[in-house]
């Protein structure tokens, strides 16, 4: 199939960017979106133009490296799919596709489609963990965890930290990402001792970098792991409870 791409090119963080039009010809419908870009990049290299820079690695939808706005939608038109798992069979011959980097104030552009998502790591550093030093763990089966609780925690833990939720949100908010980690750990019995302290610390760092959540729900719609927006409600509940509770009493 033959396609026309409008791709955002920007040489560096401070340079001006612009859309550049490229032809992608003879693309196999079985190719992934990134493999289509590989083909375009080989042609660009042949012509002596620098290839389009985009972040990618595992190409199995799990590392969270890749991500771009495809016709205005984070990770493109197919739900529950990261860009690397989006296949060209979902497009039509002759389609015009606009490709942009994540657009969010918290994610400055590094080059072309690559952005800096480091504020997400900072949220994890603030409290997205259970404090247990190596060697001090109890025997694993000492603590039974009801299967539904484990499954629910796993639903949240599947987040790949790609940043699509932020990119799609009109406010550039990171609530879905933050709430997924708050919930993963807050649902499990191991996560209880730090539960209320954790949510406050993570939310505070989140608010330093990202916009506010006004429940558009676009994050959930584009999440490649289909993480539920219910987790945001859960985080808000914990956050409120943490503010009201005597934190010492709550074990935080």
């Amino acid at each position: 199939m033959d396609l026309t791409l409008q791709v955002w090119r920007q040489a560096s963080r401070t340079a001006d960017g612009k859309f550049v039009t490229y032809d992608a010809k003879g693309i196999s419908p079985d190719a992934s979106f990134l493999e289509m870009l590989d083909v375009v990049n080989e042609e660009l290299t042949e012509r002596g133009e620098q290839p389009i820079h985009f972040e990618h690695d595992c190409r199995e939808g799990i590392c969270g490296s890749c991500g771009m706005m495809i016709n205005g939608v984070a990770h493109g038109p197919i739900g529950g799919t990261a860009t690397c798992q989006l296949h060209m069979r979902h497009f039509k011959d002759g389609d015009n596709i606009r490709v942009e980097p994540w657009r969010a104030r918290a994610f400055p552009i590094i080059k072309d489609l690559i952005v800096d998502r480091s504020p997400l790591d900072q949220i994890i550093q603030a409290g997205g963990y259970i404090s247990v030093n190596t060697g001090s763990a109890i025997e694993a089966n000492t603590l039974p965890i009801p299967k539904p609780v484990q499954e629910h925690a796993m639903d949240a833990a599947e987040c790949i930290q790609c940043g699509a939720c932020v990119a799609q949100c009109p406010n550039g908010a990171a609530q879905l990402f933050t709430s997924a980690k708050v919930s993963h750990l807050g649902l499990l019995p191991q996560g209880q001792p730090e539960r209320y302290d954790r949510v406050i610390r993570m939310v505070e760092v989140m608010e330093e970098h990202f916009g506010s959540c006004t429940m558009y729900g676009e994050c959930e719609a584009v999440c490649p792991k289909e993480i539920s927006i219910d987790f945001i409600a859960r985080m808000n509940r914990d956050y409120l409870a943490a503010k009201f509770k005597n934190r010492k009493e709550a074990g935080g």
Binding site: I130, S136, A137, A140, A153
Partner: peptide, 10 residues
């Protein structure tokens, strides 16, 4: 396994 479970690995 003990360490991972303590960290919250589901």
């Amino acid at each position: 396994i003990d360490q991972a479970v303590a960290q919250g690995v589901p």
